[in-house]
């Protein structure tokens, strides 16, 4: 089975997020970059399915040259080929990303399964997978935490509301996954060396525009009061239990 995973380069923010002077983006001058956990699980799943079925596991991103760092990370996890659809920014509008991915899928050899993260880790539009599926008129299921590929269909499991559902989709299909689907591996040294030398195929993006334009980013107002230090080490126990008693969780 041939599987393709769409991954997005996102800043690996720490405990504080700095914004650029014009507040339209996260200030990434002192940050590293990564892919989101949902997508990491998607890559892991693709590598496992390819291994099990004797197929291939590809990765694709839409963005400028530096996003190849994330493609190489996926290659070091065991993906066997990588595609970058050239775009001027790493955080395109969702309509633009979807148009680029759909166009690439029309150009590339066919895949049986195209995996997405449920939502990108930075913008979190939660829609690119569905737009791609709609453009290609392919079946799609999101919120997925279990994938069972068959010969011409795929069964997927997800939790929605108070229920657990199984959906069956004819192949080729689009699936958006959630972290928890599996436990992603850490890249091996060998994998890293192989990834460093791998060739990334670069495709052109179609011209597309979107209707949702970022004006500014803001920090959420933090209403929390001044922290009260209850003490140090085991000696703090009585003060802690006083708090628990005040809250009514212990007698």
């Amino acid at each position: 089975m041939d599987v393709l995973v769409c991954v997005k380069r996102v800043p690996a923010v720490g405990a504080e997020i700095l914004l650029t002077a014009d507040a339209t983006a996260v200030d990434t001058r002192h940050l590293g970059f990564t892919i989101g956990p949902h997508e990491e699980c998607a890559v892991e799943e693709a590598v496992r399915i390819a291994g099990r079925t004797g197929g291939s596991a590809g990765v694709l991103t839409v963005g400028p040259a530096e996003t190849e760092e994330q493609l190489r990370y996926a290659l070091s996890m065991g993906a066997d080929h990588a595609v970058r659809v050239d775009a001027p920014v790493a955080d395109p509008q969702p309509e633009v990303s979807a148009a680029a991915i759909a166009s690439a899928l029309r150009d590339l050899p066919p895949y049986d399964l195209v995996l997405f993260g449920e939502a990108s880790a930075d913008a979190g539009h939660a829609q690119v997978a569905f737009r791609v599926a709609c453009a290609l008129r392919r079946p799609v299921v999101g919120g997925v935490k279990g994938i069972e590929p068959g010969s011409d269909t795929v069964a997927v499991r997800r939790e929605v509301g108070d229920g657990v559902e199984v959906h069956d989709a004819p192949l080729p299909a689009v699936v958006a996954v959630l972290e928890g689907l599996n436990l992603p591996r850490y890249p091996t040294i060998k994998g890293r060396l192989r990834a460093r030398k791998a060739r990334v195929r670069v495709l052109d993006a179609p011209s597309a525009t979107g209707g949702l334009r970022t004006l500014r980013l803001r920090h959420r107002p933090d209403a929390r009061a001044q922290t009260v230090e209850l003490g140090r080490g085991a000696a703090a126990a009585p003060a802690v239990v006083d708090v628990l008693a005040d809250l009514g969780v212990v007698r």
């Binding site: 923010v13 997020i17 996260v26 880790a121 930075d122 913008a123 979190g124 209707g211 949702l212 334009r213 970022t214 004006l215 500014r216 980013l217 803001r218 920090h219 959420r220």
Partner: peptide, 16 residues
Amino acid sequence: RERSGGILLEDAALDA
């Protein structure tokens, strides 16, 4: 809208 799960808020123009 909420970005990054709500740690940041984004003001965006919606043109549709």
